[in-house]
Write a protein that binds this DNA or RNA. Structure first.
Length: 223
DNA sequence: GACCAGGCACATC
DNA sequence: GATGTGCATGGT
């Protein structure tokens, strides 16, 4: 919790996920795969303009048209397919009711989502945390990079391993997981870019240096 | 013009 | 299990 508090103190609440409705959040989770958020916003705007942001409408739209509308978010053919698979899953398992899907047991929902082609662990967890409001920790590229560079996880650490690091040492609280992940993205964008040789100047770095000087607990206890 | 961004599936060894 | 590749736009 100490690292979280250091980040929250520095940046304050992030009010995530950027999206008006659970359905918009779910669609955004797919569209943002390996893609800058500004590009996702353009695609979402297009879908809103065409009044397609509902399970029934999105399921009914022609794949070619969908691909054209989400073009700005990149990988548009693949993502159109993935949204199609997701809508089929929603219709098939939950009768097209987003509410029923989001109220499902989170472990069951996660297992189901992972069977959908195009939904991996991060996308599934983003949907469960930010659309359903259930406490799973979302691990993304920023999380791995930040913790990797500070020597808190090994370079090639697997998704589930990093997730366990957080979920094993934090209280199971959706609001906390929400804020923590959002704060890590903020740190990643500002201080831990891929192109820079290492993270520098972030609140996390200051915190870790301070801890090392005091030299009592293993750093992981501070997650 | 290179590099990068809130992944994932699939092939191959 | 590990590693490599295709998918693609738009900002820096």
């Amino acid at each position: 919790m100490a690292m979280y508090r250091a980040l929250f103190k520095a940046y304050g609440p992030q009010h995530w996920w950027p999206g008006d409705t659970p359905f918009e959040i779910m669609v955004g989770a797919v569209l943002t795969q390996n893609t800058a958020w500004v590009n996702v916003e353009k695609a979402i705007r297009n879908l809103k303009r065409e009044r397609l942001l509902s399970p029934a409408r999105l399921r009914a739209v022609a794949p070619r048209r969908l691909a054209r509308l989400i073009r700005p978010s990149g990988y548009f053919n693949i993502k159109a397919d993935r949204l199609g698979h997701l809508m089929a899953f929603l219709a098939g398992r939950y009768g097209g009711s987003l509410t029923r899907m989001l109220e499902d047991d989170p472990d069951e929902l996660r297992k189901g989502l992972l069977l959908v082609s195009g939904i991996g662990p991060e996308t599934a967890d983003a949907i469960i945390l930010y659309a359903a409001g259930k406490p799973v920790f979302v691990v993304d590229a920023y999380t791995k990079r930040i913790f990797g560079r500070h020597g808190l996880v090994s370079d090639g650490a697997r998704y589930d391993h990093v997730q366990q690091l957080f979920m094993g040492s934090l209280p199971r609280n959706a609001g906390l997981f929400n804020e923590y992940h959002a704060l890590l993205v903020m740190v990643g964008k500002r201080h831990c870019k891929k192109s820079a040789p290492r993270c520098s100047g972030c609140p996390l770095e200051r915190f870790l240096i301070l801890q090392e000087r005091q030299g009592d607990l293993p750093v992981l206890d501070h997650v």
